[in-house]
């Protein structure tokens, strides 16, 4: 039976601009939930609300019945924009969350070594972000988010700035990591192929003001192949719901 982790029921306005309208969904433990929608539809706002970095204008986001807050809950977020701290070495950046949460030194060391290996950055511990490629920097951000063993891992278009090839490799990598350390993930993207490749469940957002347009449970076997008829079938089904056509 799926255990409910997060309950969302909210609306969000910026001044008079309505961004999210009656967004209602639940996140279950260990699921890989992908939210897709056209760009500029309020997906990032949704991520920030789930991270507890912002409060909804009305309604709530709760985790196990308690209003979500980074001071109370163990949440991690991977931002869309490059978020490595320029003056911190890779090691110091990745251990940041652990230090903030007051984990003791030896445990920090052990966990950091683990996640650095997981994202394949061993040997780069003393490097500064400026010395790393775009894909490596995003892996640092992912490792940093993973390090704290979050109950909820948020990923806000984490591969949006990467080239197609790196993006594809990162998708494989994130799947490998997820299958190894089953985390609850909410992954936000505007790329439908990426959504179908990763998700156990997809929620489709409409254009601004965003409403939930459709929901899909994706039960394709893993590892998924981007070119099988089943995959393409699901993909075109989701695509029809998304307003991807530019006007």
């Amino acid at each position: 039976m799926e255990k409910e982790l997060i309950d969302v029921d909210l609306s969000m306005k910026f001044d008079s601009l309505s961004v999210l309208e009656n967004i209602r969904f639940k996140v279950h433990e260990n699921e890989f939930l992908v939210i897709v929608g056209p760009s500029g539809c309020g997906k990032t706002t949704m991520a920030r609300l789930l991270a507890g970095l912002q409060k909804p204008t009305s309604g709530h986001v709760t985790m196990r019945g308690e209003s979500i807050s980074p001071k109370v809950h163990n949440i991690s977020i991977v931002f869309q924009e490059p978020s490595c701290i320029p003056w911190r070495t890779l090691w110091d950046d990745i251990t940041m969350g652990l230090v903030i949460k007051g984990v003791d030194q030896s445990a920090i060391k052990k966990r950091a070594e683990e996640v650095i290996k997981l994202v394949g950055l061993d040997g780069f511990e003393e490097y500064f972000p400026k010395q790393l490629s775009g894909g490596m920097k995003q892996r640092v951000a992912i490792a940093r988010a993973y390090a704290t063993n979050p109950d909820l891992l948020l990923m806000d278009e984490p591969f949006g700035h990467l080239d197609a090839q790196t993006r594809y490799l990162m998708q494989i990598e994130i799947m490998r990591i997820w299958e190894k350390e089953k985390k609850t993930v909410v992954f936000i993207t505007n790329n439908i192929e990426e959504a179908v490749y990763l998700a156990t469940r997809i929620i489709v957002f409409s254009k601004l003001p965003a409403r939930i347009k459709a929901e899909y449970r994706i039960e394709l076997p893993r590892p998924r192949k981007l070119t099988t008829p089943e995959f393409l079938g699901v993909r075109s089904e989701v695509t029809e719901q998304c307003e991807v056509v530019e006007r």
Binding site: A51, P70, F79, E81, S83, G97, I100, R144, T148
Partner: peptide, 16 residues
């Protein structure tokens, strides 16, 4: 602001 939100998302104090 993103550099501030990273520690904030981990629940860091203002002092940190």
């Amino acid at each position: 602001p993103l550099h501030i939100e990273v520690p904030k998302s981990f629940g860091a104090s203002r002092f940190y």
